[in-house]
Amino acid sequence: MRRLTLSPLPSRRRTAVIWPAAVAGTIALTLTAEHAAHAAPPEPALTSLPPAPRSLGMPVLAAVTAPTTYTVKAGDTVWGIARAHGLDTAAVLAANGLASDAVIRPGHVLALTPAAAPAPAAPEAAPRTHEVRPGDTVSAIARANGVSLDTVLSANGLTRASIIYPGDVLRIPADSPAPAPAAVAPATAPGLDAEQSDNARLIIRVGRELGVSDRGILIALGTAMQESWLRNLDWGDRDSLGLFQQRPSTGWGTPAQILDRERSTRVFYGGAADPNGTATRGLLDIPGWDQLPYADAAQAVQISAYPDRYAQWEQPATTWLAVLG
């Protein structure tokens, strides 16, 4: 028989696993009574998962919920803990109020909070265009597309003096929403509080609506200031009421009508639109009222026992009209 010569089997070489001397990140230290221990290398991650068990008709167990906390062991680093749990290192630091150079020690319990996924960016609207046709204007194009004229001009490098021609193609961007106007308190005039300024503003508005000249409005403002301090009083001398201290007993209206600020102001101005008709005489019903001295014109309407007191309000009324009118 021939003897077979068997070659020796190749020996399997063992590869030594060399662990890094230090792991980047913050090191968890364990101190002994004599010296600090070296950081223990982290356990190697699994390279593959075991095969799923064969189904035998038994109910399938639910997946294990990912832990929400982790207790630090010797040799741990925040970087290593975050990586092992699929988290961002900065997120773990932030969730535990740690600085990047903070030291963690065995026994510390860290919260494992995954970093929130950024919200997807809203898709940008595709830009629209408009081809200019004969007769088009930029303002008409902007209006038809629901955007402002300035938005279209700016998007196309145009000014209000620019000329567009048939065949030109204009970009129509989305119009940015106008910011909500900030709440602004109504203006007050010098020497008047908010209530007085509001009443003065009403006297001015009614005068404008009736076509009264500025001088007539100044007379109304000064008269109301002298009679009621520009306040809608529900009391006065005898039965006098309201801004102009009109009296129900002399035909100026019922108490409720006189306390209606707008109605009493229209009655003071009088004229063709006087709510009282010809029952009372307002400023516009006095012949030549605009040629009378300031105090005389007011006195012709009010018939006051103190006619000279109206004159002191002519100059302040001029300021009130300038500020509020």
Rank of each mutant, 00 (worst) to 15 (best):
T159H: 09
V152H: 10
T77K: 04
P42I: 11
L321N: 06
V60T: 14
T77A: 07
A300G: 11
R105I: 09
V212W: 06
D193F: 03
R281K: 13
A126Y: 00
A90C: 07
S162Y: 11
W320T: 02
L4E: 09
L93K: 04
V132Y: 04
Q246T: 15
T77L: 03
L98H: 02
P127H: 05
T137N: 05
T319A: 14
T254G: 07
L4K: 01
A305H: 05
S11G: 09
A311F: 03
V138Q: 14
E262K: 02
P177L: 07
A21L: 11
I81E: 03
L233A: 07
L31K: 03
L170I: 12
G25W: 08
P316H: 07
R263G: 04
D150R: 15
R54G: 10
D168P: 02
S100Q: 12
A37G: 13
D150W: 12
A122E: 04
Q291K: 13
D296T: 12
G207N: 02
P307F: 14
S304F: 01
P114W: 06
I203T: 01
H35S: 13
F268H: 00
D136R: 00
D308E: 15
G57E: 06
T30N: 05
D214M: 05
D76W: 03
V147H: 09
R3A: 10
L221E: 11
I104Y: 12
V64Y: 00
D296F: 04
N199I: 08
I104W: 04
D136P: 08
G57F: 13
P8R: 14
R231Q: 08
I204P: 04
D150V: 14
L321I: 02
T71K: 09
T137V: 08
Q196G: 10
R205S: 14
A52H: 10
A84I: 00
L243P: 05
G135H: 03
M225R: 09
R143D: 14
L61W: 00
G282F: 06
A119G: 06
A183V: 15
L221Y: 11
A22E: 13
P67Y: 03
L87Y: 08
A125R: 09
P120V: 06
G191L: 05
R309W: 00
N276Q: 14
R13C: 09
F268N: 01
A178P: 04
V109E: 09
P293N: 11
L283G: 01
A40S: 12
G282V: 07
L243S: 01
H130W: 15
G325M: 00
T319R: 07
L87D: 08
G282N: 12
K73C: 06
H108A: 13
A317T: 01
D76N: 12
G242H: 09
D214S: 10
G211C: 05
W79M: 13
A194Q: 03
N199C: 04
V92Q: 02
L243R: 01
N232D: 01
